[in-house]
Amino acid sequence: MARMKFLCDAERCIECNACVTACKNEHEVPWGVNRRRVVTINDGKPGERSISVACMHCSDAPCMAVCPVDCFYQSAEGVVLHNKDLCIGCGYCFYACPFGAPQFPQVGNFGSRGKMDKCTFCAGGPEEANSDTEFKKYGRNRLAEGKLPLCAEMCATKALLAGDGDQVANIYRERVVGRGFGSGAWGWGKAYPGSGS
């Protein structure tokens, strides 16, 4: 199996925020923490386009490189995960990430989940799959249940794709051929260099 990837098709994204609330729903992410967001460019003008952004699970993840305590690891599927027990909340990863993915919950209501929080590609963390502990620290582990990230699975227009990188690329390519143009697989050059986006 090739590595897992996200792809957001900006021609399709209508900025409905389903990906954002699906994520909140699935992982009970509290107010103020956003593992996924939708960014709009040229807001209100011709050329307005939106992209759903979260951790892209980069093949050569900058967050991993800068982490002083090495709390990150990459799963066999290429998902970039981290260990909240090791994280010291220093914020280096946040500065290194080109997608602004790492989140730092305010002290208080999310303290129990601890430290940095980010998209897990619905793959939980280093705890027993779908145990209470894993859910509390990292959220649901859909991959272990044979399901893909809910944000993509619930996307209103199938703009956001998530899964095996080769399959994602195929679906996107078919679409581009169908409509005769594409505005590029957003973020792929940065996240997966050499993937031929």
């Binding site: 199996m1 690891y73 799963s75 599927e77 799959a129 893909l148 399959q167």
Partner: peptide, 20 residues
């Protein structure tokens, strides 16, 4: 990375993900 190791997916699950 020297933290707790994570479980890995088995082949059935991977196949399921591919189909999904």
């Amino acid at each position: 990375y020297s933290g707790k190791p994570d479980e890995t997916l088995n082949d059935d699950t991977r196949e399921q993900l591919r189909r999904r």
